[in-house]
Design a protein around this nucleic acid. Structure first.
Length: 507
RNA sequence: GGCGCGUUGGUCAAGGGGUUAAGACGCCUCCCUUUCACGGAGGAAUCACGGGUUCGAAUCCCGUACGUGCUACCA
C-alpha cells in the first residue's frame, strides 16, 4: 500500500474557525497515526473572496495548535505548488480531456441567460431550477451548437465555462470511512461548472485533479460536501483514476449551541465566545479575538476540539496530542453534528491548567501579568505564585485577577465585610501582630502561622475571627490561597505595610 | 419543493438484541477548607414518535416527525 497522504485544504477567506481547526486536527492525527504526510493546500480559486493575510494566519493558527503540516506553500515538498491559484494552468488540460471524452462540455451562456432560465422555470412552477439533463439542450453550449460554431466561439475566446455532463438515472457508490457504503442518485446534481470563465477551476475540478496529482490517499472534509460527492467520484472515474481515488470521510458539523445550524462567526459575537483559533484582523470587519487571546492553552483547545465528534470509547477525556495520535481512528468519528458548548470548552482548559507544570505555564502567565504592569523580579517567588493559584484559574487570563495582589497592593479594600464585628480587641491584636512579625527573622509560612495563632490565643481571640480580616488586608477580598502562604510570598515588610494600611482605614 | 445526512438527559456522549442505560460538562445538596477555588460524597435529569421483527428492542426493519446540509462561474 502506498504511503498515507492527507491534506487540509482551506480557502483563505478569513479567520480559521473551530470546524476548520478540527478538520486539520483529524487530518494531522490520521497522518501521524499512519506514519503518513500531512499537506496544506490553499484553495484560493475564488479571487473575489480572497483575503490578504489569511494564508499566513492559517499557518500561524496550525502552528499554535501544534499541528503544522509537513508540506505546504511555505514548505514545499515534491508536489507543489500548493496554492491552487499557482496551479491554474494545470486544470484546463484536464477539463478539455473531459470534453473530448464526452463527459463535459463548453457552455457559452451568460450569467443573464442562466438567470433567465431560472426565472422561466420558476414561472412554470418547477422547483428544481438547475442546469441539468432536463435543460441543457435548451441552452447555448457545445452539446447543441454545431461543431463549427463552438469552435468559432472558442477561437475568438468567447467567455465560456466547462460543465460536467452528469449522467441520468445512475447511482454513484462509494465508501465513507464514517458512514459506510453510500449510494447516491446522479439526477439530483446539476451540471456543475468545472472550469470558470476566468480560467480558474471550481472546487469540484480542483479537488479531484489536485488530490490525484498530490497522491492524496484519504480525503477528509466537512459533511456539507456530501451532496456533491457524486460529482467528485464520477470525475475520478472519467479521468480513469478510479484505482487511486482517496478514501473519503465526511466529518460531522459543529453546530450552534442554542438554535440550529452550522456554527458561524456571528454566533460567537452573539453568544460571547470565540469561534476562531487566534485573533483575526479582518480588513473589512475589524479585529475578532480567538481562543488563544481568551486564555486557552493550545493543548486544551485541540483536546476539546478532538472530543467534539470523536472519543476513543473509554472514559478518558483529557488527551495529549501524542495520546490522540495513538488512539485516533476515523471509524470512531460520529456521523452526526455536535453543538458547541463553551462551558465544556472552558472545563478542558481548566483541567489543562491544573495538570500543567509550573514550568509549562510560566511563559504564558508571565506575559499576562506583565501586560498588566506586574514586575516579575524573583523567579522563585513567581513559580510559587503560579503553584499557589493555578488550580483556581480556568483561563490563563485569570492569573491576573487571581494573583494581582502578589504584585500590587489591593486598591479596593471592602472593610464593610469585617466592620460590623470589628472592635478594639481585634485592633489591638493586629497592632501586636505587627510588632511580633517585625521581630521575626525567618519569614516562612509555618512561622507566620504559628506567631499568628499564638498571639490569638494570648489575646483570647479565635483565629477564625481574625483570619478573615488578615486576608482582607493582604488580598482585598474573600478569595485566594491560604493567608499565611500569601504572607510568606509577600514578605515581611509588605505584610506589615498592608496590615497598617487597613488598620488606618478602620479607624 | 427536491435530494442527502442525522436523532441516547439542557449539552458532550458510552452502549449496536437481555445492562439497575456508563462517564463528563452544567445545575442542586452535603463534606473538606475558619476565604475562594481544588478535592471528595450524593442528587435531579435521557433512548423523538408510531408500527413491525423477536420470547425479549435504545440496539434490527418500515413509516412519521424533527433537526441539519446541499440545491452558485463560493468553498
Amino acid at each position: 500500500m502506498s504511503k498515507v497522504r492527507v491534506r487540509f485544504a482551506p480557502s483563505p477567506t478569513g479567520g480559521l474557525h473551530l470546524g476548520g481547526v478540527r478538520t486539520a486536527l483529524y487530518n494531522y492525527l490520521f497522518a501521524k497515526k499512519n506514519d503518513g504526510a500531512f499537506v496544506l493546500r490553499i484553495e484560493d480559486t475564488d479571487q473575489t473572496r480572497y483575503v490578504e493575510g489569511a494564508e499566513n494566519y492559517i499557518i500561524e493558527c496550525l502552528n499554535w495548535c501544534g499541528i503544522l503540516p509537513d508540506e505546504g506553500p511555505w514548505k514545499p515538498g515534491e508536489y507543489g505548488p500548493y496554492r491552487q491559484s499557482e496551479r491554474k494552468d494545470i486544470y484546463r488540460k484536464y477539463a478539455e480531456q473531459l470534453v473530448e471524452s464526452g463527459h463535459a462540455y463548453y457552455a457559452f451562456d451568460t450569467p443573464e441567460e442562466i438567470e433567465n432560465l431560472r426565472e422561466k422555470l420558476k414561472a412554470q412552477g418547477k422547483y428544481n431550477v438547475q442546469y441539468d439533463f432536463q435543460n441543457r439542450l435548451n441552452m447555448r453550449n457545445s452539446l447543441v451548437l454545431p461543431k463549427e460554431e463552438t469552435e468559432a466561439l472558442l477561437k475568438i475566446n468567447f467567455p465560456h465555462v466547462v460543465r460536467i455532463k452528469m449522467p441520468r438515472d445512475e447511482y454513484v457508490h462509494f465508501n465513507d470511512m464514517i458512514r459506510g457504503e453510500i449510494e447516491m442518485p446522479t439526477d439530483g446534481v446539476d451540471d456543475k461548472v468545472l472550469l470558470k470563465a476566468d480560467g480558474m477551476p471550481t472546487y469540484h475540478l480542483a479537488v479531484v485533479v489536485d488530490d490525484y496529482l498530490m497522491k492524496i490517499t484519504h480525503a477528509f472534509r466537512g459533511e456539507e460536501w456530501l451532496p456533491s460527492a457524486p460529482v467528485h467520484v464520477l470525475l475520478w472515474k472519467y479521468f480513469g483514476w478510479e484505482k487511486q481515488m482517496p478514501q473519503w470521510a465526511h466529518l460531522p458539523l459543529i453546530l450552534k449551541p442554542d438554535g440550529n445550524g452550522k456554527l458561524s462567526k456571528r454566533d460567537g459575537e452573539r453568544l460571547g465566545f470565540p469561534v476562531f483559533a487566534m485573533e483575526w484582523n479582518d480588513p473589512k470587519s475589524g479585529v475578532v479575538k480567538g481562543f488563544k487571546e481568551l486564555g486557552f492553552l493550545p493543548e486544551a483547545f485541540i483536546n476539546m476540539l478532538a472530543l467534539l465528534g470523536w472519543n476513543d470509547g473509554s472514559e478518558q477525556e483529557i488527551f495529549t496530542l501524542p495520546e490522540m495520535v495513538e488512539k485516533f481512528s476515523m471509524d470512531r468519528v460520529h456521523s452526526h453534528g455536535a453543538k458547541f458548548d463553551f462551558e465544556k470548552a472552558k472545563w478542558f482548559n481548566h483541567e489543562w491548567i491544573k495538570r500543567s507544570s509550573v514550568e509549562r505555564l510560566k511563559p504564558h502567565v508571565k506575559r499576562i501579568l506583565e501586560d498588566h504592569g506586574a514586575v516579575i523580579d524573583d523567579e522563585n517567588k513567581f513559580e510559587k505564585i503560579i503553584e499557589l493559584i493555578k488550580d483556581r484559574c480556568t483561563l490563563l487570563t485569570d492569573f491576573w485577577p487571581q494573583g494581582s495582589f502578589f504584585f500590587v497592593p489591593p486598591t479596593e479594600i471592602d472593610t464593610s465585610s469585617i466592620l460590623p464585628k470589628w472592635n478594639e480587641n481585634k485592633n489591638q491584636f493586629f497592632i501586636e501582630l505587627i510588632r511580633s512579625y517585625s521581630f521575626m527573622n525567618l519569614w516562612d509560612t509555618e512561622g507566620i502561622e504559628h506567631t499568628f495563632k499564638e498571639l490569638a490565643a494570648a489575646s483570647k481571640l479565635k483565629p477564625g475571627e481574625l483570619m478573615g480580616a488578615f486576608r482582607l488586608m493582604l488580598v482585598g477580598g474573600k478569595f485566594g490561597p491560604g493567608v499565611f502562604e500569601i504572607s510568606s510570598v509577600l514578605g515581611k515588610e509588605e505584610t506589615i505595610r498592608r496590615i497598617e494600611h487597613t488598620l488606618s482605614l478602620l479607624k
